[in-house]
Write a protein that binds this DNA or RNA. Structure first.
Lengths: 206, 206
DNA sequence: ATCCGCAAGTGGTCTGACCACGCTGTATAT
DNA sequence: ATATACAGCGTGGTCAGACCACTTGCGGAT
């Protein structure tokens, strides 16, 4: 029963098998995955090991467990991760500044990518959307912006950090529509310096 | 936020208590933390719950478990996280490109920060170090660079992503010393455009 | 003094049990 | 016939105890 060479932790293997299972069964966000007991039986491992694996996947924000109902796939958004990060990483004021800085670095990176891609139609379409809406929050504006960048990893990082930042109850500054439009216009104009300038104005960094 | 919420999972609470314990006892990297059985008894919870908490902390790269020895604090570097990320996020080639891009975005952000800080002495000192060493790897060069940025969060993210990227066995390109020096010189010169240009040359992006 | 082996301690895993909660089908009341 | 209440079942959450695998260190044998 115990083949050698398997000194690795079981739960890591289980994570991989569950991932494979999700792939093969073509499960999508919202779908239910097998119960802990069924996984335990199908994979021939103890339920506690299955739970350790699920905990890890949950930490990555990929599943959600609901007592009495089951375990479900979710559209990856950091959740537990945020809680734990806040427990460990947020120990001094410097950390908050680092967090804020990092979020803004990513946002500027996104702007640069969008600028370089030179996708005027996409930007124009987005500008129209913004113009129509009555109130736009910074979150919405940049979420869309980061999505436009089409870098899933960067998107994930930004979402986690932004959720985290919002979870601290600092004053949430919201900018005005003209500030958003100014950034978008600068993007269409095509001057990096101007884009960054408008961005910093929006974020009140000047 | 701090309301009852009795429905919270025990293991989250345990994580917080362990963190507090580490603080109060003044434990440092390398130190041993109490055994699972002792934690279980001291916190009056089941050992399996303690294990789920330790798994979470391990995922964050903050502890290391050694069978037969115990559990030890470590100098936070993403480890298990990397393995799990690779299991889940690395599903297509696009993901690899996103990863590479993201690493490079962060590196450029660091360069911009260093540039703005205008810390000539620090850069000069670093330049001397590089000049003396016989061979410098990209990893070493940028690790130092990200450290210089003095943003612990950004540092952590970079380390995780970079470890991850290195763990895929793609060809590891190493640049020549002149390329490093060119970036450093550009930093001292103070022109952002030139810094980015030298960086891209180093990364062979031109 | 050196070496070896065994006991103790630790993490890794499994099993079985019980609780808390959500859902659903059925029996009951209207 | 319809609406409501409730009990049973399946699920995740937690606990206790038992082994196993591995490391260390102590004590006895040489």
């Amino acid at each position: 029963m115990n083949s050698e060479a398997v000194s690795k932790k079981i739960y890591i293997e289980i994570v991989k098998k569950i991932r494979k299972m999700i792939d093969e069964d073509g499960l999508k966000p919202g779908d239910k995955i097998p119960s802990e007991r069924e996984l335990s039986e199908r994979l021939q491992v103890g339920r506690s090991s299955v739970r350790e694996a699920l905990r890890a996947i949950e930490l990555l924000g990929l599943i959600e467990t609901r007592r009495g109902e089951g375990t479900f796939l979710r559209d990856a958004r950091g959740n537990q991760m945020v809680q734990l990060l806040s427990t460990f990483i947020l120990q001094d004021q410097k950390a908050v500044k680092d967090l804020k800085d990092t979020i803004q670095f990513i946002e500027m990176d996104c702007l640069r990518v969008i600028l370089q891609r030179n996708n005027d139609e996409g930007i124009h379409h987005y500008r129209q959307t913004v113009e129509m809406l009555d109130d736009v929050s910074d979150d919405e504006f940049f979420l869309k912006m980061v999505e436009l960048t089409d870098n899933h990893l960067l998107y994930r990082i930004w979402v986690v950090l932004n959720d985290f930042y919002r979870s601290l109850d600092l004053k949430k500054e919201t900018s005005s529509k003209p500030a958003y439009l100014a950034v978008l216009d600068a993007l269409m104009n095509g001057e990096e310096k101007e884009v960054i300038e408008k961005y910093k104005k929006l974020r009140k960094l000047l």
